[in-house]
Amino acid sequence: MTIVFYTASAVAIIATILMLTRANAVHALLDLIVSLLAVAVIFFVLGAPFVAALEVIIYAGAIMVLFVFVVMLLNLGEPATRAERALLRPSMWIVPSVFAAILLAEFIWLLVSGDVPPSAVAGIEAKETGMALFGQYLIGVELASMLLLGGLVAAYHLGWRKVPQTEATHVSHP
């Protein structure tokens, strides 16, 4: 299991780095999907099969399909790839690298100080996840659902327009 964990972690890191450096939007999305799947494997190995399944269904299977769908609908092609490549200048990497370095330093400090939370977690089944979500964290779930509903109503409002009925009648009576 340790080997599976480290392999999946390596895949996740490499796929994420590839995702950041791709100029083609669809290729970047594919790398992100691989990274999400690797994270799902990590969840599974850590004893949370329910969360792993949700990661695959919701993140890799639903949200990323929407992303791919939008990119396909826009179908930007070669000009967008060139514009993106121009954006990926070395100077663009300075700020993200500094932040990443801070995180890395924190992580190393945590590892060295030995103040790490216990990693051997017992298996968490669907029931425990559900009870935590709809018991202890109920307010968070409700807030998230309200936010999503607000987004849905707003998107519907923005996308709604009255279809003019007059054109069709003109065509039918030449």
């Binding site: 329910f50 399944a53 949700l54 695959v56 269904i57 890799a60 299977g61 639903a62 399909v65 669907a126």
Partner: peptide
């Protein structure tokens, strides 16, 4: 859930 994930 595994089947649903694979189908998605």
């Amino acid at each position: 859930l595994f089947v649903l994930g694979m189908s998605s």
